[in-house]
Write a protein that binds this DNA or RNA. Structure first.
Lengths: 131, 131
DNA sequence: ACTATATTCAACTACATGGTTGACTATAGC
DNA sequence: GCTATAGTCAACCATGTAGTTGAATATAGT
């Protein structure tokens, strides 16, 4: 039973809430990068990029290896996995809702309506339809 | 090919970066709740809770139905799905790394080392070991 | 009409964030 | 040893965030 402590999630989600940092993660998914390389694509100062990297580091998304005067950064995807673990539970609801929608369409078509999906806890009534 | 616009992701990840808001999402996954009900478990003022709800609303995570003087909130998990879609790509790397680790253990055991995993683009060398 | 309930709004405080600049540290190369 | 390169640090600024309080709005109940 994984716990995935909440403060960790705070940091991970916060780190990923910034487009610059998400772009850094994307670049790191291809290859390791130095701080300078990581900063290059953005029109911000090295100092600003350094701060972004530190935020990613605090979230555990980046591990740094100091090698002489260059700092090599590599992606650690474990925190992303943790974030997904948290989200997955609610994505299940999303899938359920899709199922309910398909169920409605089906019952609308067949008008049989023998639907009896197992009650998980006490789930929100669909009432979707939206637009 | 899904796009999932970046500003949406900014809002979703930012909304989920706060423990109070994540708790609200959790409660809404069980049932719809009014603003008051949503605020009750926390030792903050209604006004503060109202702000949190607005953040979740802006991220598209909550839809509100004004019913008389009460505002009923229900969870919309589509943005969570979008967030997961973004993360899923990097989780794949996580799984890859697990595979690599298992591969290393296997080769260590058999000492055959005929490893030749398809080069995806130019991926980071494992170099793990950490602690 | 009057009062209680549900919720937002505006103003304010304290603190975090993202950015800058300039100085500093440390390594690499001549 | 001197200079260029890689990166951090500290101070500062503007803006955003999370919280408060008090007033305002709107509906429900009597």
């Amino acid at each position: 039973m994984v716990d995935y402590s909440a403060p960790q999630l705070d940091d991970v989600f916060h780190a990923l809430a910034d487009p610059t940092r998400r772009a850094m993660v994307a670049r790191l998914s291809h290859s390791e990068q130095t701080v300078g390389e990581l900063a290059a694509p953005f029109s911000i100062t090295l100092a600003a990029a350094s701060k972004h990297i530190k935020v990613l580091e605090r979230a555990g998304l980046i591990a740094r290896t100091v090698n002489g005067r260059t700092h090599m950064c590599r992606l650690d995807t474990a925190p992303i996995h943790a974030g997904m673990e948290w989200m997955r539970h609610y994505e299940k609801l999303w899938n359920q809702r899709i199922d309910v929608l398909e169920g409605l369409l089906a019952s609308e078509d067949a008008d049989t309506k023998r639907a009896d999906p197992k009650p998980d806890d006490q789930q929100a009534p669909p009432k979707g339809t939206g637009s």
